[in-house]
Simulated scan of single mutants.
Amino acid sequence: MISENINQIQSEIPDHVTLVAVSKYQSIEDTMAVLDAGIHDLGESRVQDFLKKYEVIGDRSRWHFIGHLQKNKVKYLIGKTFLIHSVDSIELVNVIEKESKKQGIVTDVLLQLNLAREDSKSGILAENLNAVLEVIPSCQFVRVKGLMAMGPLTQNNEKIREIFMELKRIYDRIKEESWGEVIKMNYLSMGMTDDYTIAIEEGSNMIRVGRKIFS
């Protein structure tokens, strides 16, 4: 069933879009089934669960940490992730820089925005984004590779589309500006099970899908 679900999703998305299988809450067996189906980008949102799977799967996956990241848990991710999607403050940038320096490893991250301004979501508000970006060029062990956001909690597809359009505009603006080598807009991570088709229409090149793969 997992491989059939993945095949269905892959038939719907363009080749340039990376499918991140959100394996949080899933068993090792089901997570391995995703790898067997040819998907090697896995998304986890809790450090403890991630570490348990990493012990078994290791570098056979490109690991994406997509959940809210507490500063005291950063050290457990360094050197193990392909991307940390959920960087939402200057303080978190500084901790990732410090812990990465300790291990002599450069950590790639995405900046998470909260464009819907929902209290239930983490993320940088649009008006605070430049303050975070201005910190990055002084970092030696953190590289920003793009942006991430979640669609708003609504059934209104037009409101969802508006948020994704706004994120794409911000992504394009940063791409055109000169922020230095440590800020590159390579990945626009937006779109989940219920809204990834809208996200792709609005320019997403990385979607995070869980329920549609594992249900």
Rank of each mutant, 00 (worst) to 15 (best):
M1C: 03
S3N: 13
N7G: 14
S11W: 01
E12R: 14
I13K: 03
H16S: 08
V17M: 11
T18P: 08
L19N: 07
L19W: 04
V22E: 01
E29S: 07
T31D: 02
V34I: 05
I39K: 00
D41W: 05
Q48A: 07
Q48C: 03
L51M: 12
E55P: 06
I57Q: 08
I57W: 09
G58K: 12
R60M: 10
I78C: 10
I78T: 11
V87F: 10
L92T: 12
V95K: 04
V95R: 02
E97T: 07
K98V: 13
Q103R: 15
Q103G: 09
G104A: 12
L110M: 13
L110Y: 10
L110F: 13
D119W: 01
S122C: 12
A126I: 10
A126R: 11
E127P: 11
L129I: 09
V132L: 15
E134Y: 07
V135M: 09
V135I: 10
I136T: 05
C139E: 04
Q140Y: 12
Q140C: 13
F141E: 06
F141V: 06
R143F: 04
V144M: 15
M148L: 07
M150D: 04
I160D: 01
F164Q: 08
E166I: 07
E166M: 14
L167K: 09
D172A: 13
S178C: 09
W179S: 08
E181T: 14
V182P: 10
I183K: 06
K184N: 09
M185P: 12
L188T: 06
M192Q: 06
Y196M: 04
I200R: 03
E201Q: 14
E201F: 03
E202V: 14
M206S: 04
M206N: 05
V209Q: 00
V209Y: 00
V209F: 00
